[in-house]
Design a protein around this nucleic acid. Structure first.
Lengths: 242, 242
DNA sequence: CCTTCCTTCGCTGTATACAGTATCCCGCAG
DNA sequence: CTGCGGGATACTGTATACAGCGAAGGAAGG
């Protein structure tokens, strides 16, 4: 067996299948036949089934009562709810970090990241790739800031809900000038959130994190209503019905 | 193959294994060998592995880097965090139900259940079994009240975090007179929550649901500190290290 | 007596085999 | 032309086979 990692096959199945689904390779409601998929991905049904179970849990697939799985379909409401929940979870992480005191190392790194984000969104030195990377790190730190493994786990889980990730709408922003403004507003919130946590202002930190997630909501609605042609570029948006 | 249900083997494996773990059949940190367990449960490794994957996701098991699973161990902090998150999720369900308007049928049923709970905790007509059943239904309704499948899913998921379920501490209450008072306070909150949602008071509903979860926190701390001998009766508490 | 290395056993992850059932397609009747 | 069995097909859920790696235990040396 060619196993470099302990779970190499399963990990590959999960990543590749999730990628295929988000890429819109299948239509919403399509039934996924394990046999064909396994062959297509070049592995056996066992790790593939494992991956499908996981994707059912993430919400990208639905189990069929009669057997098998189909690709889930979402209404706009579902996506908005998922984003709302991500905001609630990040808000909780922020509040707990403020109330209990943040992990010092992480807090320091969070300040650095916030400063770096400031530079990245500066119109003179605008650096989109850096922004995407730093933004992802910011949200990752936030999840762990309260020092609670359980909270971190569940925040990260909320980010895996369909199209709810903090980075979900950063793929297409390069080409949407209107989103530049959204980045600036996001950065104001990053800064305020960092300060609120440092000042132990739990309620404010929670409210800021929730409001921060609303940006994703705005971006989502903007894409769906004004630029439906862009939906193909944002992973997963092809599964959203109007 | 004796398949009454489509997933009979897997479902049985999940229920029985979870029950064994919560019952304290294994010590925290024990490695679970699939071979032996499969034989013990009378099924093959395939559905058992599926169940173990699920329990890893629920947090009862931990994957070992080198392969296999072990029974997770929790600190008191972990349980408190899990309860906190359950409160946050139920609070969100309550807030959204208030803000968006609750499903009329469910709202009506919730009133009925609240009235019935009132009767069940009446000292003259105290009915513990009815309370347990109605309380479970109350929380189930709450999860679905906003009419959002995503929210309902995630609320229910938060209730599966270790010892975070609204019913987790209702097993032993029969024998702990001190908990009678806790039931009365819980019922005051049930009533207030129902009214807040009906009155579209989102912030109040959210705060009430969070505070309601704090009762579980109190019960947990009471059992751990004052009545450690009772820990054996509450499912899962044997895995909690002081 | 303790430590260290090697061997052996056992366990995991993956692939495959098997049995039962839903699904699909076709022919036929209305 | 449409709706409805009926059989073949294919797919799912479960069991088992297999290969490689880890863990434990014993032998040998310090």
């Amino acid at each position: 067996m060619t196993s470099q990692d302990r779970n190499a096959r399963f990990a590959r199945a999960l990543i590749e299948l999730r990628s295929l689904i988000l890429k819109g390779e299948f239509a919403a409601g399509d039934r996924l036949a394990e046999t064909g998929l396994a062959e297509r991905l070049g592995l056996s049904r066992t790790p593939l089934r494992q991956a499908m179970d996981r994707l059912v849990d993430e919400g990208l697939l639905e189990r069929i009562e009669t057997g098998g799985c189909r690709v889930a379909s979402f209404g706009m409401d579902d996506i908005l709810d998922a984003i709302e929940l991500r905001g609630v979870m990040e808000g909780t992480a922020a509040r707990l970090a403020a109330e209990r005191g943040a992990d010092p190392d992480l807090a320091a790194r969070m300040e650095e990241v916030t400063d770096a984000l400031e530079v990245a969104v500066d119109p003179d030195r605008f650096d989109f790739r850096a922004y995407v990377r730093l933004n992802a790190e910011f949200h990752d730190i936030l999840a762990h800031l309260a020092g609670s493994p359980i909270v971190a786990r569940e925040v990260e889980r909320a980010c895996r809900l369909p199209v709810a990730s903090p980075t979900a709408f950063l793929q297409g922003q390069e080409v949407i000038p209107d989103f530049r403004d959204s980045l600036l507003r996001a950065q104001v919130q990053h800064r305020a959130l960092t300060q609120a946590i440092a000042a132990r202002e739990g309620a404010r930190a929670e409210a800021l994190a929730r409001e921060h997630a609303r940006l994703a909501r705005e971006n989502f609605q903007y894409v769906m209503m004004k630029k439906p042609d862009l939906a193909a570029r944002v992973p997963g948006l092809s599964l959203v019905a109007p």
